Amino acid sequence: MDGVEKEANRPTDSSSVPKHPYKDPDDGRQRFLLELEFVQCLANPTYIHYLAQNRYFEDEAFIGYLKYLQYWQRPEYIKFLMYPHCLFFLELLQNANFRNAMAHPGSKELAHRQQYFFWKNYRNNRLKHIVPRSLPESSAPPPPTPPAPMPPMAVASALAPSQMQFVGQTISALPKVDMRNSMGDRRKRKKEG
């Protein structure tokens, strides 16, 4: 019996699971939301500049945290992101040269400007890839029919300026009115009358 008691009282391996592991009360929801918020903040070059100015990028633990956050690039997590540029900047932050460069205001402005131009032209660039392409030659549509001749009155109206052009000309011909002067004139006329 002594052998059995000694074995029961023997300390367990450090690799074995403890009897009472930590149980997150909200199943990691709070941690998920905090990491999601932080990763999305990285889409802002001004925030990255703030981190660089306050020397967060000199802390090895923080650099390790940035490496850890790369799991957000996996499809099961990427669907929660609203600002996809955060992943681009997260990837750039893995490079020490980029982290050092973002401490300078000029680099921050350059990154912000490039991001703006990307957003400005993003829709047009995407439309180039979305718009359907022309059909192959074998199923080409029938040739168009020639247009019918226009009656003489329609020719005259086609040569005349449109109504919008006329409105634009009349508006530009009107004198500009300074509202301060017109109000003062009205008060003077009211007193005189």
Rank of each mutant, 00 (worst) to 15 (best):
N95K: 01
S134T: 13
W119Y: 12
T145A: 15
R74W: 07
E109Q: 05
S16Y: 05
Q165I: 00
N100P: 00
R113P: 00
Y71M: 02
A140C: 15
Y50I: 01
Y77H: 10
L90S: 13
C86I: 05
A140W: 15
K108D: 08
P132M: 06
Q115N: 09
F62E: 00
D178Q: 12
M150R: 10
S162Q: 11
K67Y: 13
L51C: 14
G106E: 14
S134W: 14
A154L: 08
N125F: 01
R126D: 01
G193M: 07
G28W: 04
K176D: 04
P161M: 07
Q169D: 05
R189W: 06
P105N: 11
Q70P: 04
C86H: 03
K6S: 14
L159S: 10
A103M: 13
L69I: 10
A158P: 04
A140V: 15
L34I: 02
G3M: 14
I78P: 10
C41D: 11
K120Q: 10
L33K: 09
Q163V: 12
R187F: 14
Q73V: 14
V177L: 09
F62H: 00
Y71D: 02
A156C: 07
Q73S: 15
S172K: 01
F57T: 02
E192N: 09
R31Y: 11
G64S: 10
I63F: 02
P136M: 10
L42E: 04
R10G: 00
P147Q: 09
A8I: 14
P141Y: 14
N97R: 06
E109V: 03
P84C: 11
K108R: 15
D185H: 06
I48W: 01
T170P: 01
R29Q: 12
R126S: 05
R186E: 04
Y116M: 15
V17C: 15
R10I: 00
G28I: 04
S182F: 02
E76V: 12
V39S: 03
S107A: 12
W72F: 11
Y71S: 01
Y116G: 12
S139R: 13
Y50Q: 04
P11A: 11
F62D: 01
A101W: 03
K19F: 06
